[in-house]
Nucleic acid binder design. Structure first.
Length: 565
RNA sequence: CGGGGAUUGGCGCAGUCUGGUAGCGCAUCUGCUUUGGGAGCAGAGGGUCGUAGGUUCGAAUCCUACAUUCCCGACCA
C-alpha cells in the first residue's frame, strides 16, 4: 500500500473525550472515529487491525473443529420469548418493531438463534458434537458505554456455540475451546490469563474468562503464588484465617460523635480496622432486610452475596427509612448486636472476638463485642472479596491481585436453552433428549484496544506484529527530489510485497520528522529509512518499533530482516 | 438511573466571574524557502459560541428548560 493512496489521519493532540490510553491512541492514530455514544466507525487503518485479529481467530477456530456460519443481527422477539429472556434481559436489549408492529431486537448474543438452528437442523446423536461459530456485529445497549471500543454498544464478536449428547462431550469441547483460546492469544502475542469466573446472567455450570493483563483493566484477578489457581475476584473464594479468639473483654458503649466509616472509627478509637465489624443492611428474600457483617478491612462481594438465598438479587442496599426502622439509626452506626433480622457474617468476621461495631444508635459504637456471648451465632458465608495475602483456596500459596481486560469468555451452558426451546435429539436408544450446549465468545474489537493498552509508549502504539495494520513501512527521505532514493524505495517496496510482507510505502512529500512521528504513533513494527546518504554506502536504516536505536544494514538484507522472523 | 464535569471554526483551548458584538495554537488552502525527528516566512478561508425560551438598549457571558457528550457507581466480549 502506498501512503498517498491510503487514508491516514493522525493528530498531534489528544481528543478530550478519550480518557484511557488505548482510546486516545486509537483516535490519534486514526483507527476509529466516534459516530455517537458507544458507536464507532472503524477507519481503514483500524479495520486492517480487526481483520488480522479475525483471521487468527478464524484459523484457530477452524483448527479446533469450529464451523463458520453467519446469523442475522436482527432477531425476532418470538425466540427470545421462548427462552424467557425477552423479559429477563432488560433494557440492554435494544428492541424495535417492524412496519407490521412485530417485535424485534438487535442481537446482543445469539443463543436463541443458534438453538433454533440446532433444533431444526440436528436430529441424530450421530451429528454431534458440533460447534458453530460466527464473527459478527453485536449490539448491547450498555448503561454506560466507555473507553471507546473497549466498551462500545456496537462491537464485533466471535461467538461459538457447541451442541452435545452428553455432558462429557461438552467438557471435551470446552477444553478444546480453552486451548484454542490460549493459542489465539499466544499467536496475537498478548500477555493474558485464563481465570475462573462467575457465569453471570447467561447461566450455566462452569465458566472461564480470558483476560489481557493491563493496569487499566476493569476487572481484578486473583491468582495464587503456589499453584495454577486464578479467578476473577468476583468469583475467587475467600479463605478465613485462624480461629475465633477468647472473649476477654466486656462490652462497653463508647461515644463516637461524627464517626460514620470504618476508617473514622479506627482512627477515633485507635483500633485496627481488622478489629472493627462493618454491618451492611441489604434487601432480603424472606425478610425485608438482612444484615451482612464483614471485617472492617474487607470489601463486600456483591456477586457472592446475591447468590445467597436470603439475599435479594440484584443486591440492593436498604433505604435510609428501612435502616431506621430496623436499627433505629443511620447507616454509619449499624451493628449486629440486638438486631432481630437475619445476620449473615463473612467467615473472617465470624472469627472476630472482642470487636468494635455500631451500637444501632447514632454517634455510638460498642467495644468488646463477642459472638455467642453478646449476640447469637451468625449464619456464616463467604461474602467478601479476596485480598492480597489471603491464603489460596487451593491451600497452596497466597493470593496476589492483578488487573485485566476481559477479552474472552467460555461457558458451559448445559441444557438451559435446549430445554426452553425444545432442542432435542435422538440418542443411541432412539430416545429424545435435550442437547447440552456450550458457548464461547471473543470480543474482537476489544482485543485491539486491549493490545494497545498493553503495548504502547509515549510515542504511540507498539503493535504486536501479528495484528499490526502494516508490518513494515518504508520511509524515504526527500523522495521528491532524489531519483535514486525514489528508485531504491520503489525497489524495496516491490521486494517486500513479493515476499508477502504487508508493507506501506510512505511516498508522501513530507519532512522526515513528520513521517517518523506518524508511523511511530500508528505503531508499525518495522521501519526502513532510505536516504541518499545511506544509498551511497549501499545501506538502509532499520528500526524495530520498540528498538531504542536504529541500525544500518545492507540493502540486500532488508527483506530477510523481516521474513527471517 | 444516581453523582460530577463539559459543549466557542475540523481538533485542542482562552474569553463567561465583572454583558458592549469572538480570539489563540494545531490542522486546511496559496506562494516562497527548507528536507534525518510533527520546519520557517508571507498571505487566505472557515464559527448564527449545543438548542429553545427569557432578562437587557445590547447576551458566548446573566436566568430557565431541554439536548448531546465525558468521567465515577450497578451490566458485560
Amino acid at each position: 500500500m502506498r501512503a498517498s493512496q491510503f487514508h491516514l489521519a493522525t493528530t498531534k493532540e489528544t481528543p478530550s473525550e478519550a480518557e484511557i490510553v488505548s482510546h486516545q491512541l486509537m483516535l490519534r492514530a486514526g483507527l476509529v472515529r466516534r459516530l455517537s455514544s458507544g458507536l464507532y466507525n472503524l477507519m481503514p487503518l483500524g479495520l486492517r487491525v480487526v481483520r488480522k485479529i479475525e483471521a487468527i481467530v478464524r484459523e484457530e477456530m477452524n483448527r479446533a473443529g469450529g464451523i463458520e456460519l453467519l446469523m442475522p443481527a436482527v432477531q425476532p422477539a418470538e425466540i427470545w420469548q421462548e427462552s424467557a429472556r425477552w423479559e429477563k434481559y432488560g433494557p440492554e436489549l435494544l428492541r424495535m418493531q417492524d412496519r407490521h408492529g412485530r417485535d424485534f431486537c438487535m442481537g446482543p448474543t445469539h443463543e436463541e438463534v443458534i438453538t433454533d438452528i440446532a433444533r431444526k437442523e440436528l436430529r441424530s446423536y450421530k451429528q454431534l458434537p458440533i460447534n458453530f461459530y460466527q464473527i459478527q456485529t453485536k449490539f448491547r445497549d450498555e448503561i454506560r458505554p466507555r473507553f471507546g471500543v473497549m466498551r462500545s454498544r456496537e462491537f464485533i464478536m466471535k461467538d461459538a456455540y457447541s451442541f452435545h449428547t452428553t455432558e462429557a462431550s461438552l467438557l471435551e469441547t470446552f477444553d478444546d475451546m480453552h486451548n484454542a483460546y490460549c493459542e489465539i492469544f499466544n499467536r496475537i502475542g498478548l500477555e493474558y490469563r485464563p481465570v475462573e469466573a462467575d457465569s453471570g446472567s447467561i447461566g450455566g455450570a462452569k465458566s472461564r474468562e480470558f483476560h489481557v493483563l493491563a493496569d487499566s483493566g476493569e476487572d481484578a484477578l486473583a491468582y495464587s503464588t503456589g499453584d495454577e489457581f486464578a479467578a476473577n475476584v468476583e468469583k475467587a473464594a475467600a479463605v478465613a484465617q485462624g480461629t475465633r479468639g477468647e472473649a476477654s473483654s466486656d462490652m462497653a458503649v463508647v461515644p463516637t460523635p461524627g464517626v460514620h466509616t470504618i476508617d473514622e472509627l479506627s482512627k477515633a478509637l485507635n483500633v485496627d480496622a481488622k478489629q472493627c465489624a462493618k454491618t451492611l443492611l441489604v434487601e432480603g428474600t424472606e425478610s425485608p432486610v438482612v444484615a451482612l457483617v464483614l471485617r472492617g478491612d474487607h470489601q463486600l462481594n456483591a456477586i457472592k452475596a446475591e447468590h445467597l438465598e436470603q439475599v435479594a438479587s440484584p443486591l440492593t442496599f436498604a433505604s435510609a427509612e428501612a435502616i431506621q426502622s430496623v436499627a433505629n439509626c443511620d447507616a454509619g452506626s449499624i451493628g449486629p448486636v440486638g438486631l432481630t433480622i437475619p445476620v449473615i457474617a463473612d467467615a473472617d468476621a465470624a472469627n472476630m472476638s472482642n470487636f468494635v461495631c455500631g451500637a444501632n444508635k447514632n454517634d455510638q459504637h460498642i467495644t468488646g463485642v463477642n459472638w455467642l456471648r453478646d449476640l447469637p451465632e451468625p449464619v456464616i458465608a463467604d461474602i467478601r472479596n479476596v485480598v492480597e495475602g489471603d491464603a489460596s483456596p487451593t491451600g497452596k500459596g497466597e493470593i496476589k491481585i492483578v488487573r485485566g481486560i476481559e477479552v474472552g469468555h467460555i461457558f458451559q451452558l448445559g441444557t438451559t436453552y435446549s430445554e426452553a426451546m425444545k432442542a432435542t435429539i435422538l440418542d443411541e436408544n432412539g430416545k429424545s433428549q435435550d442437547m447440552h450446549m456450550g458457548c464461547y465468545g471473543i470480543g474482537i474489537t476489544r482485543v485491539a484496544a486491549a493490545a494497545i493498552e498493553q503495548n504502547h509508549d509515549d510515542k504511540g502504539i507498539i503493535w504486536p506484529e501479528s495484528i499490526a495494520p502494516f508490518t513494515a513501512v518504508i520511509s524515504p527521505i526527500n523522495m521528491v527530489k532524489s531519483d535514486a532514493v525514489k528508485a531504491a524505495a520503489e525497489k524495496l517496496y516491490q521486494q517486500l510485497k513479493d515476499a508477502n510482507v504487508d508493507v506501506l510505502l510512505d511516498d508522501r512529500p513530507l519532512r522526515p520528522g513528520v513521517m517518523f512521528a506518524e508511523m511511530e504513533l500508528i505503531g508499525i513494527p518495522h521501519r526502513f529509512v532510505v536516504s541518499e546518504k545511506l544509498l551511497a554506502e549501499n545501506q538502509l536504516e532499520y528500526k524495530g518499533r520498540s528498538d531504542s536505536e536504529a541500525t544500518l544494514i545492507n540493502i540486500e538484507e532488508a527483506v530477510q530482516k523481516i521474513t527471517a522472523k
